[in-house]
Design a protein around this nucleic acid. Sequence first.
DNA 1: TTGACATATGGATATACCGTCATATGATCA
DNA 2: TGATCATATGACGGTATATCCATATGTCAA
Lengths: 106, 106
Amino acid sequence: MADLEPVALSQIQAERLARTFKALGDPGRLVLVSLLAHGELCVHEIAGRLDREQSAVSHQLRVLRDRQLVRTRREGRHIYYELTDDHVRDLFEVALAHVSHSETTR
Amino acid sequence: MADLEPVALSQIQAERLARTFKALGDPGRLVLVSLLAHGELCVHEIAGRLDREQSAVSHQLRVLRDRQLVRTRREGRHIYYELTDDHVRDLFEVALAHVSHSETTR
DNA sequence: TTGACATATGGATATACCGTCATATGATCA
DNA sequence: TGATCATATGACGGTATATCCATATGTCAA
């Protein structure tokens, strides 16, 4: 029996992946992502729209930025945030489909 | 300007989604998911293959089960676990694509 | 029914995480 | 340059989360 046995993720891959999912594992950050899914926004616009403190938003954005889920662009004194790539949007949508699907069951 | 403004997720949706992502935000549980992506397995098979304590695996599986990422089937004294639906596999794969893609950048 | 196997659960502790407050950096404008 | 706006950072306190150990539940076989 060579390797018919399912081979699990490597430890490194698992940790990297976990960091990505963990970044999305917070309601506040998900709301950020859902906002950014419509296009780029700068920090105080986000804070204003969500009625959250600038500092809190900034901390949350940092997590998303560290995990490369969002990227930034500077323009004058504003810094615009947008989703890094379509994977992020996909993740968001697939997960939404999952919870909507199992919604009835709960 | 009626509702051209991007509307964020509802609080409830965000929390539900966050629970799903949080469940995947742990290296150990991701390894479980990666194993189950190949088909169903029972607890002691998993524990054996990963060389982890039965209790630990059981705790981890409970989280995945609560979030409906896996479901179970009893057969005698064994309980077989499998992924609930294809969304789970999709999430896993899209995220893997994302981190593999940004791998070079880090 | 007893014993052995398969799985689940509870408690305890250590760690990680989120939000807040205060402050720092960086950029523009007068 | 000084004042102000936009954003980031650091420290800290409360809460959640993971892991370990011990034990409980449930199933089968003899």
